[in-house]
Design a protein around this nucleic acid. Structure first.
Length: 574
DNA sequence: GCCGTTTTCGGCCCGACTGTTTTCAGTCG
């Protein structure tokens, strides 16, 4: 079947192939754009072509439309097949190494016959790179470090592993004499679920004195590079940190520049150009080279005729057009959350009692907590047997009686069995205040089976929430094969809430799909899936996902008071 | 490869740093 995701992947890979061939960067961008258009496409590929939308879509011209038609008809792309056959596979591996781009990678393959990362490492140790033009001892050393980096971490880190550290480093920098301000930028500020490095922007009257601090930063292993406005270091944790220093009056522009994304900037600069302005990391310049003062990011956007765009939205996915039209949503904020529904206690695989979890929830200013231990089939997680269900309910009733003003709800995270039935019979499910249904087994079902399985579960009138809808574990396990568009449509049809699992290891539903869910009329819940009191703070990551998904407080169930939120989880029962 | 009330050709976002160079290409973000 001619799948749009498959074609998106082919286009993206063509972009890499073109880069390896040293092709025109704008041609490369055209393929990257086309890949993104297909990824975001509503409906299937056949309909996209049949309806003629393919010819009306900006960014898809004659040549790309032809390739889309070819793929639809034959399931292949000759252009891709030919190019793929002509480019040695090792080049794909080599360009993943920091410091190695297409040009140098090609040289290594052609001149030194490098055919694997292992061979490259060996060649470095034998000192053979230094013989090539454009290469030297330093390059060789850098490549060795890059190989080490890729081998140890694949270059990616969980947001949760770097965000707190990044804030700590920014605070340290800000406290240094001569430093006016320091702030975390880059993909951390945009709250991407995984990030490659840490970017910190610093304001100082003498920027070179700020970058000179690089070697003294807490947690530094080595200084990789250092100039008057920029420094790079490697931290002992294995990740890289870039410091960018500018004068105080340039801070807002620099913060904006280094927050990205690349795609957002490309769009913004095009817009600036239309207004005869130039954006760079120092500010806005007119055609005559006059620099316009930018007090803050809001001023920068306003100068371009746009409303302020929150960092989480700066992904080049329509936010500029929405800002121009005054159509950006008022994003949900952490303070909007009034309680949570998904967490575990010592009754199953949690480490704290319901009383301890409730106390922790109260400390966070919440008014309610939904206790959802695992169901009986989840033996690995000590899922609740029927008699334990009763025991837990009595405990929760006792706690509620003792603590007026705070509501504990007796819920369950019920396994969705491989055939789509639930782990307890309906009469047991009816006894819970609410039910989250999740897949925890038989991950390897076909997409059709998995999709049918999940939709069947959502059709159960007691299922209020679909938990972690794709089952992915970030940097460890892909989600199971499932037709999310169909799941979202079924959630809308049945009135089922979809969970944004706020565990930083999951963050699933992915933010790219949140917007689709919202547009389909689906409500979402931001739930920590906490197994210990401190993990209730995961909610911050879930809110970040919701914000990246353009969601407002109204789109999130648990921004509502207890009774109203609970009623939404039970609206199918009547 | 895309696009167009200045254009169907000639643009397409912009700059810093490194290493190896003796004027700049490559890489990165």
């Amino acid at each position: 079947m001619a799948d749009k995701q498959e074609l998106a992947r082919l286009f993206a890979e063509i972009a890499v192939l073109l880069e390896l061939k040293g092709e025109n960067p704008f041609k490369i961008r055209a393929y990257e754009t086309a890949a993104r258009i297909l990824e975001e496409l509503d409906g299937d590929l056949a309909e996209f072509v049949a309806s003629g939308r393919v010819d009306a879509t900006k960014g898809i011209g004659e040549a790309l439309a032809l390739k889309i038609r070819e793929f639809l008809a034959t399931g292949r792309l000759k252009y891709y097949d030919d190019m793929k056959a002509a480019v040695p596979p090792v080049l794909f591996e080599l360009v993943k190494i920091p410091g190695l781009g297409p040009k140098k990678a090609l040289q290594l393959h052609e001149k030194l016959g490098i055919n694997s990362v292992g061979e490259l490492e060996y060649a470095c140790r034998e000192n053979r790179l230094a013989t090539l033009p454009g290469f030297g001892a330093k390059t060789q050393e850098r490549i060795l470090q890059g190989i080490d980096y890729v081998k140890r971490y694949q270059g990616q880190f969980l947001l949760a592993d770097v965000w707190p550290l990044a804030e700590k480093i920014a605070a340290w920098l800000e406290a240094q004499p001569g430093v006016d301000a320091a702030a975390v930028a880059g993909s951390i500020r945009r709250r991407k679920e995984t990030v490659k490095d840490i970017d910190v922007v610093v304001a100082a009257a003498e920027p070179e004195k700020a970058t000179a601090l690089a070697g003294a930063l807490p947690g530094v292993e080595t200084v990789l590079g250092q100039g008057p406005t920029k420094a790079s270091v490697k931290l002992v944790t294995g990740m890289n940190l870039d410091i960018r220093a500018v004068r105080p009056e340039e801070f807002a522009a620099a913060l904006h520049h280094f927050t990205g994304s690349k795609e957002h900037h490309v769009g913004l600069r095009g817009l600036a150009k239309d207004k005869n302005l130039k954006i760079n990391e120092y500010g806005l310049e007119t055609a005559t080279g006059e620099r316009l003062a930018i007090a803050d990011e809001t001023a920068l956007y306003r100068t371009l005729g746009l409303n302020y765009i929150e960092p989480e939205l700066r992904e080049g996915l329509g936010e500029i057009e929405a800002a121009a039209g005054g159509e950006l949503p008022a994003l949900v904020a952490p303070a909007d959350i009034r309680g949570v529904f998904h967490m575990h206690t010592t009754f199953s695989d949690g480490s704290a009692t319901p009383a301890e979890m409730a106390a922790a929830a109260r400390e966070r200013g919440w008014g309610y907590l939904g206790v959802t231990d695992h169901s009986r089939t989840a033996v690995y997680a000590r899922g609740l047997r029927l008699e334990t269900v009763d025991e837990q309910r009595r405990e929760i009733e006792r706690l509620n009686a003792a603590n007026p003003g705070f509501r504990i709800m007796a819920g369950i995270e019920c396994d969705i069995l491989p055939d789509g039935t639930l782990d307890y019979p309906d009469e047991v499910l009816a006894g819970f205040d609410f039910v989250i249904a999740s897949v925890h087994s038989a991950f390897r079902q076909s997409e059709a089976d998995m999709t049918r399985r999940i939709i069947t579960a959502m059709e159960n009138r007691y299922v209020g929430v679909l938990g972690h809808p794709t089952g992915r574990i970030l940097l460890a396990r892909d989600g199971y094969a499932v037709d999310l568009a169909a799941v979202i449509a079924a959630a809308a049809a049945t009135g089922t809430v979809i969970e944004i699992n706020a565990s930083p290891y999951r963050l699933d539903l992915d933010w790219r799909w949140c917007r689709r869910a919202k547009e389909a009329g689906v409500l979402l819940a931001v739930d920590p899936d906490a197994h210990a009191p401190a993990e209730l703070d995961y909610v911050a990551y879930g809110v970040a996902v919701a914000r990246k998904g353009w969601l407002t407080a109204a789109d999130i169930v648990n921004t509502r008071p207890a009774a109203e939120a609970l009623a939404l989880l039970c609206r199918k029962r009547n």
